[in-house]
Write a protein that binds this DNA or RNA. Structure first.
Lengths: 189, 189
DNA sequence: TTAGGCATGTAACCCGTTACATGATTTG
DNA sequence: CAAATCATGTAACGGGTTACATGCCTAA
């Protein structure tokens, strides 16, 4: 068992190191900006916030919101939290284990018709192109609010990863589509 | 809950649709040829084989190995197994949820020194280059035993995915390394 | 006024890895 | 003959998703 393991913890600490957030806001940020390389569910976030609070790595912020008492529980990171975050950031990256269902299906696709496989590829391509457009949109937003994010450059590099890898996905789809189309024609003859 | 969910099941059915295999052999194949896009542990494979056998999707092969009675339990796929495999292959691909720890660390890397982050990138690059070399090796092997695999072309396409995406990884590493090196110099001034 | 978004949380369940147990066979 | 590899399997644990429960607030 590794010292890390629980990465939700560090995602939360990381986000709280930038600004005070509620569980709901954390989820929103992950869905909007991290979705292409990370995901979290409420079932992870809320219990984790509770634990981190108990451990003293974060603390609840008293939201004195002038007029109305909000129901949102905001948290801020403590010094202890920052030092644990730092520790984790300095630890070597565990190698990710991805599971591409589409490649499994591709591998065994001689069992099914090329038409069906082509359809899978098309869907894969469409959904990833949709994501690729979000990269551009997010990058524009970033340029506008350049001063807000102290880690502006780092975010750009994360985005660059997405753009490069998603481009590779797209090119692969093009290549594979062609092969499958040829196969369809060949079979019809 | 989706009708699929349990993908180990279909990996096993897929591999058994090509040849009779034991649990141990399945693990070996996954580790050698699928490792860049799939992984399985014994703790998944053996119980799953048992279940599939009970369900009648696969059956134990009586290994009559002339001289010595082997301890290996080989399985073959049944017609029922093939039709379930086919069904799954035709179902739409669920979108994968990847978690790139390196991108999380990159995102928050303003907290740590560029030297440490650069080290992470280097390790990422090295391990992925190692994998990239295996693509070439595997492709050569494929060309040699072209006739053995009926799905030769499909395997090549899976490999092509790896080559393209891993190339994108490598290019990203180069780009990011440069940025981090500049940052280090900038800070020293 | 009702549907949808905001907001927090818990419980059940599934999936997957790790660790452990066991024993045969091969190789230095 | 000891160490490594082959080979099969189980149990425990942990991480993550889904479903559910609850209640507020806002806009059509």
């Amino acid at each position: 068992m590794k010292s890390s393991g629980n990465k939700t913890k560090f995602l939360i600490l990381g986000l709280l190191s930038e600004e005070q957030l509620s569980g709901y806001e954390i989820k929103k940020i992950v869905d909007m900006r991290f979705s292409f390389f990370w995901s979290e569910s409420f079932g992870q976030i809320y219990p984790q916030l509770k634990r981190l609070n108990e451990e003293g790595l974060i603390e609840e912020v008293v939201v004195e919101d002038s007029e109305n008492i909000k129901k949102t529980k905001k948290y801020s990171i403590t010094d202890k939290g920052i030092s644990e975050l730092k520790e984790w950031l300095e630890e070597p990256v565990e190698k990710e284990s991805v599971r591409y269902e589409i490649l499994l299906k591709m591998y065994f696709s001689n069992i099914i018709s090329p038409e069906v496989m082509l359809e899978h590829i098309r869907e894969f391509q469409i959904s990833h192109r949709k994501q690729a457009k979000l990269f551009e949109k997010f990058q524009q937003q970033l340029e506008e609010y350049k001063d807000v994010h102290s880690n502006h450059k780092d975010i750009l590099m994360v985005l660059s990863f997405g753009k490069k890898v998603w481009k590779a996905y797209d090119e692969w789809c093009e290549e594979v589509s062609e092969v499958l189309e040829n196969r369809m024609e060949g079979r019809e003859k």
